[in-house]
Lab assay of single mutants.
Amino acid sequence: MAAGGDHGSPDSYRSPLASRYASPEMCFVFSDRYKFRTWRQLWLWLAEAEQTLGLPITDEQIQEMKSNLENIDFKMAAEEEKRLRHDVMAHVHTFGHCCPKAAGIIHLGATSCYVGDNTDLIILRNALDLLLPKLARVISRLADFAKERASLPTLGFTHFQPAQLTTVGKRCCLWIQDLCMDLQNLKRVRDDLRFRGVKGTTGTQASFLQLFEGDDHKVEQLDKMVTEKAGFKRAFIITGQTYTRKVDIEVLSVLASLGASVHKICTDIRLLANLKEMEEPFEKQQIGSSAMPYKRNPMRSERCCSLARHLMTLVMDPLQTASVQWFERTLDDSANRRICLAEAFLTADTILNTLQNISEGLVVYPKVIERRIRQELPFMATENIIMAMVKAGGSRQDCHEKIRVLSQQAASVVKQEGGDNDLIERIQVDAYFSPIHSQLDHLLDPSSFTGRASQQVQRFLEEEVYPLLKPYESVMKVKAELCL
Rank of each mutant, 00 (worst) to 15 (best):
G4Y: 14
G5A: 13
H7D: 08
G8Y: 12
D11E: 10
Y13D: 08
A18N: 08
Y21G: 10
S23W: 11
S23M: 05
P24M: 09
C27Y: 09
C27E: 07
F30D: 03
S31G: 05
K35R: 09
R37T: 07
Q41A: 12
Q41D: 06
L46N: 13
L46M: 11
A49R: 02
A49L: 03
T52V: 06
L55M: 06
P56Q: 01
I57W: 04
T58M: 06
T58G: 03
I62Y: 05
I62P: 00
Q63L: 08
E64Y: 12
E64G: 05
L69R: 01
L69H: 07
N71D: 09
N71K: 08
I72P: 02
I72M: 15
D73E: 05
F74Q: 06
F74C: 13
F74P: 02
K75E: 13
K75N: 04
M76P: 11
A78W: 02
E80S: 08
E81N: 01
K82Q: 07
K82F: 13
K82D: 02
D87T: 00
M89L: 07
T94P: 04
T94N: 09
T94E: 14
F95H: 03
H97I: 09
H97M: 09
P100C: 07
P100K: 06
K101F: 15
A102W: 00
A102H: 03
A103W: 04
A103R: 12
G104H: 12
G104S: 10
I105Q: 09
I106D: 05
G109K: 03
A110Q: 01
A110M: 13
S112E: 05
C113A: 05
C113T: 01
Y114T: 06
Y114L: 00
V115C: 10
V115R: 04
G116W: 00
D120C: 04
L121G: 09
L121R: 02
I123K: 07
A127C: 07
L128D: 08
L131P: 09
L131T: 09
L132K: 09
P133H: 11
L135S: 10
L135G: 06
R137E: 06
I139S: 07
I139K: 06
S140W: 05
S140N: 15
L142Q: 01
A143P: 00
A143T: 08
D144P: 12
F145T: 15
F145L: 06
E148Q: 12
R149N: 05
A150T: 15
S151Q: 15
S151V: 11
L152V: 03
T154I: 10
F157S: 08
F157A: 10
T158R: 00
T158C: 04
F160D: 03
Q161A: 10
A163D: 02
L165V: 08
L165D: 00
T166Q: 00
T166N: 03
T167P: 00
T167V: 02
T167C: 07
R171G: 02
W175S: 11
I176T: 08
I176G: 05
I176D: 04
Q177E: 15
Q177F: 12
Q177N: 14
Q177K: 08
L179R: 03
L183C: 10
Q184N: 13
N185F: 06
R188H: 15
V189R: 10
D191N: 08
D191K: 11
L193S: 11
F195D: 02
G197P: 02
K199M: 10
K199W: 00
G200Q: 13
T202F: 02
A206Q: 15
F208K: 01
F208M: 12
L211S: 11
F212Q: 08
E213Y: 12
G214Y: 04
D215R: 13
D216P: 07
H217G: 11
V219Q: 11
V219A: 05
V219R: 01
Q221T: 11
M225R: 08
E228A: 12
A230P: 00
I238M: 08
I238D: 01
T239N: 02
Q241L: 01
Q241T: 03
Y243N: 10
R245Y: 01
K246N: 03
K246M: 01
K246H: 04
D248P: 05
D248A: 03
E250G: 12
L252T: 12
S253F: 12
S253R: 06
V254A: 08
V254Q: 00
L258I: 09
L258A: 13
L258C: 08
L258Q: 11
H263K: 06
H263S: 01
K264V: 02
C266F: 09
R270K: 00
L271V: 06
L272W: 12
N274I: 01
L275V: 07
K276G: 07
K276Y: 11
K276I: 03
K276V: 03
K276L: 06
E279D: 15
E279L: 06
E280C: 08
F282C: 13
F282T: 06
F282A: 01
G288K: 01
Y294P: 01
R296Q: 15
R296F: 12
P298I: 00
P298F: 01
M299W: 02
M299P: 07
R303F: 00
R303A: 03
C304Q: 05
C304G: 11
C304E: 08
S306Q: 00
S306V: 01
S306G: 09
L307N: 14
L307V: 11
L307P: 00
A308Q: 04
T313I: 04
T313G: 14
M316I: 08
M316C: 10
P318Q: 01
L319S: 00
L319A: 00
T321W: 05
T321G: 08
V324I: 09
Q325E: 05
F327R: 02
E328W: 00
R329Q: 02
S334E: 01
A335N: 02
A335Y: 05
N336P: 03
N336S: 09
R337N: 01
R337T: 03
E343C: 08
E343K: 14
F345M: 10
L346P: 05
T350L: 13
T350V: 13
I351L: 10
L352C: 09
L352P: 00
N353R: 11
N353Q: 12
T354Q: 14
T354L: 10
L355A: 07
S359G: 09
G361Y: 12
V363Y: 04
V363P: 05
P366W: 14
P366Q: 08
K367Q: 12
K367C: 08
K367D: 03
V368Y: 10
I369W: 03
R371A: 11
I373D: 01
R374K: 15
Q375G: 04
E376A: 13
L377C: 05
P378A: 01
A381P: 00
I385R: 02
I386P: 01
M387E: 01
A388V: 04
A388W: 06
M389R: 05
M389I: 06
G394A: 06
G394W: 08
S395N: 09
Q397K: 10
D398C: 05
C399Y: 05
C399F: 04
H400G: 04
H400N: 03
E401A: 14
K402I: 12
V405K: 06
V405G: 11
S407A: 15
Q408D: 08
Q409D: 13
S412E: 13
K415Q: 04
K415Y: 05
E417P: 01
N421V: 08
D422E: 13
D422R: 10
L423R: 05
I424E: 09
R426D: 15
V429P: 06
A431T: 13
Y432H: 14
S434R: 11
P435S: 10
P435G: 12
I436W: 04
I436M: 08
Q439P: 06
L440Y: 13
D441Q: 14
H442C: 05
D445W: 10
S447P: 15
F449R: 11
T450R: 02
A453T: 13
S454R: 13
Q455M: 14
Q458L: 14
R459S: 12
F460Q: 02
E462G: 12
E464V: 12
Y466E: 12
Y466R: 13
L468H: 14
L469A: 13
K470A: 13
K470E: 15
Y472L: 13
E473I: 09
E473S: 15
E473Y: 15
S474Y: 15
V475S: 15
K479G: 15
L482P: 14
